[in-house]
Write a protein that binds this DNA or RNA. Structure first.
Lengths: 204, 204
DNA sequence: GATTTATTTAATAGCTCTATTAAAAGCGAA
DNA sequence: TTCGCTTTTAATAGAGCTATTAAATAAATC
């Protein structure tokens, strides 16, 4: 990170908080300035446009969201262990960034430009990772350890189960009154359920 | 449906189309009027406020989204068959209403008022259905047909796998160039995968 | 055909939003 | 202290938004 003075950082923090909660369209630079405790013009002074400020945050979050898949591919472990680690890392990241799935999906779906940028980045940076995983997967299938499926199939199950759980967060929480303990317990229960289902889905 | 003249219906159709695509906040009454081919003031003449127009559409979609769960509970079938039927009905409904999951989640998360209305409606209309399903499930567990789990666990798996697939629609489509045939094939493949995973997740 | 009622329009009030601008305040170096 | 640069502010242009209003047109009823 480049050195950054207090106000500039405050604006970035305020923007991150609000963009994550309400998305690009529903967050105004006026509101960001209020949250950061500064004048609205300062937001534009430091970041020129709302779009540029947003993009900076969005790309960082996007990276956070995708990083595990690369990590997993580097390690030398049995394939099933890689998948387990990947699913666990994904879940743990989501626990610390619960607003992430909703944020990313919303912005990708509402803005085709951002989706195109993502697809280009996937082609450039993740195609090889994907290929390696897929080759390894096909080898496991050939050996009869895993049933006939593609790596996309595996990814979808992980992303669906883990992602949707946290996208439903605001809705599910309403059902758990009282202290947050019950809810935390519930999330831990779901962690085990999801992992179990993901691994079971590999079995022939 | 009450009788409704052409313009009034055109406005409703235009609003539905735009709200589903872009959500409440990003759709303007001006745009709805343009889509409906009428003056902007007419939107307000027939529906008073954007909020009332939206609510009308939202409630109808909400009902569409929840209806299957009731249907399934009425029939007299083995429990596992009920779950299968429920998952299939859910998937088929989503195929015909692909924008539905994104639309509903977005509006529920961005507007706490709508979420509260939903929760009240669930308490009122679905609590009994839920109880019946859950009792039946506990009986199956006691008999050893199904492993230890709650009905919420089952619902989450169905909603996650089916819902996320269609929320990812715009992203996944980008990967399938050419005619839509490949994509349709892929969706059918995922239908079977999801069903398989859902039913397997019940097994002890 | 005249009169009442329903539909449609243009115009606009009153907001809020993004981005810019010119001026003011703060501050380190000469 | 003064100069030059950075940071901050108030003010505002220009646009889009929702909702209303009064007037115009079309349709229905007598």
């Amino acid at each position: 990170m480049a050195e950054i003075n207090n106000t500039e950082q405050d604006i970035l923090d305020a923007a991150e908080k609000l963009f994550l909660r309400k998305g690009f369209a529903l967050t105004s630079t006026t509101e960001i300035a209020r949250e950061a405790g500064c004048n609205q013009a300062l937001v534009h002074y430091y970041y020129r446009t709302k779009e540029r400020l947003f993009t900076r945050i969005f790309q960082q979050k996007m990276y956070l969201f995708l990083a595990h898949f690369i990590d997993g591919s580097r390690k030398n472990m049995p394939f099933e262990t890689k998948i387990r680690k990947m699913a666990e890392a994904h879940f743990n990241m989501l626990i610390k960034n619960q607003q992430l799935p909703f944020f990313i999906f919303t912005e990708l779906i509402l803005n085709e430009g951002r989706l195109n940028i993502l697809m280009d980045s996937l082609d450039e940076n993740y195609e090889e990772v994907y290929r390696i995983f897929n080759d390894e997967l096909q080898e496991e299938i050939r050996k009869g350890h895993i049933r006939e499926m593609t790596f996309l199939d595996i990814l979808l199950v992980i992303v669906s189960l883990n992602g949707m759980l946290f996208m439903l967060n605001p809705i599910l929480r309403k059902g758990f009154t009282g202290t947050g303990d019950n809810y935390r317990e519930f999330i831990n229960h779901r962690r085990e359920e999801n992992l179990r289902i993901i691994l079971q889905s590999l079995k022939p």
